[in-house]
Computed example of a mutant assay.
Amino acid sequence: MLSIKTGHPVNGVDISADGRLILLGGRDKQMQLWDVETQAAVRAFPFSNPVQAVALSPNGELAAGSKIYRGGFIPVWQVQNGTDAPLYQIDDTHHIDLVSCLAFSTDGRFLISGGHEPEVCVWEANSSNLRHKWEGYTPPSAVTFSPNGRYAAAGYGGSGNGRIIIWMLKTGKEKSDINTGKRGGVRCLAFAPDSKHFAAGCRDLTLRFWRMGRKTPLIQTTLGRAPRALVFSGDGSQMFVGLANGMIAVHNVVDGTAVSEWKAHYTTVTSLAISANGTRLISGSEDGTAKVWQVK
């Protein structure tokens, strides 16, 4: 296990598809790129304010981030370019306020963003051109792509009524709109590897698991603490949930039963990411550390 101590809360983590590179960012006003094999820092990307969200393209070539405080700028760096200047920066024309969530598509062609306005944007990763912009009714609390590249999704209701909207990435048309309830505001959201199922961790301390096309969850189980981050195992048989008490809980997708859990951090797990083959899991925490776990 690799443990990186930053001395400041870690707000976001991501990992390359092969599990070799990890990206983290937090209140130390920088994103850090690490090589898991050598256990050494590769480079840092400077910010003028604490970092809120990070995203690493699956091939490890592009790194994107957003900062805390107003101003929805999203700088994107070319990892192999050693300069501090980003390759390009998405301006605040579409995100006026803080950008709180980011993710690259599995093929690396698109970047999705959501923030403190009721809008979700999809950008062409190599050019920063806006591909889609969807208006919601509240600010999104989570955004993601399906592994097959066909869908984009957002979870809403971090502090109120819950909702999950799924769009078809090619056309931009809405595919599904799911109401998760008055107390079921979505905190975290993830697709399963088969892209036919997805799950959400909600403010009412539930973990819910759906099949695409159905509005009623196949599984709804109660967690002991608030869920803050969520990913699926490489084979889709399990869900890893980062909790507010520093634990990572593992639940199966058959009936939602807790398989195991461990004390990963001293305090809240803020973010999780997993390699494409499901062998490496990375966690970030308010305790100022990011850790890499062998999970297979």
Rank of each mutant, 00 (worst) to 15 (best):
K175V: 10
L2H: 13
L218V: 14
R150V: 05
A153P: 08
V36I: 09
G26T: 03
R150S: 14
H94W: 13
D91H: 05
V13R: 13
A55Y: 11
W293T: 09
N245E: 07
P227S: 01
T38M: 04
T216K: 15
M247A: 05
F209P: 02
V292I: 14
Q80A: 14
F45W: 06
I219V: 14
K173M: 13
P139Y: 01
G72S: 01
G181S: 11
E286Q: 15
K173T: 13
T270M: 12
K215D: 15
L223I: 04
T106S: 12
V10P: 04
G82N: 04
H132D: 01
K173A: 14
T206H: 12
W293E: 01
G7K: 05
T106G: 01
G181W: 13
R225Y: 10
P118C: 05
A154V: 05
L130T: 02
Q89G: 03
A63S: 02
V269M: 06
Q89P: 04
D14C: 09
S16E: 09
V42G: 01
N81A: 10
G172V: 01
R225Q: 11
L130E: 06
D287C: 07
R228E: 09
I165Y: 05
I248D: 05
W167P: 00
S159F: 12
E135S: 15
S128G: 03
W293I: 00
V54W: 06
Q238Y: 10
F47Y: 10
F47L: 09
T171G: 12
L130M: 07
L111H: 04
D14G: 12
T289A: 12
I96F: 14
K175M: 13
T180F: 12
S128K: 04
H94N: 12
Q30K: 15
D97N: 13
Q78E: 14
Q30M: 08
R183E: 15
G181Q: 13
E117L: 05
I166G: 07
W293Q: 00
R20N: 12
M239A: 02
N59A: 14
Y151I: 00
S260H: 13
L243R: 10
G26A: 06
V143H: 00
T206I: 07
T216D: 13
L2S: 03
L33T: 02
V259H: 08
S275C: 03
P140G: 07
E261Y: 11
L111I: 04
L207M: 12
I274E: 00
T268Q: 11
L205S: 01
A258E: 15
D18I: 10
D28P: 03
G82H: 05
G136Q: 10
T279E: 15
M31N: 03
K133L: 14
D177L: 13
P118T: 02
Q89V: 02
I166S: 13
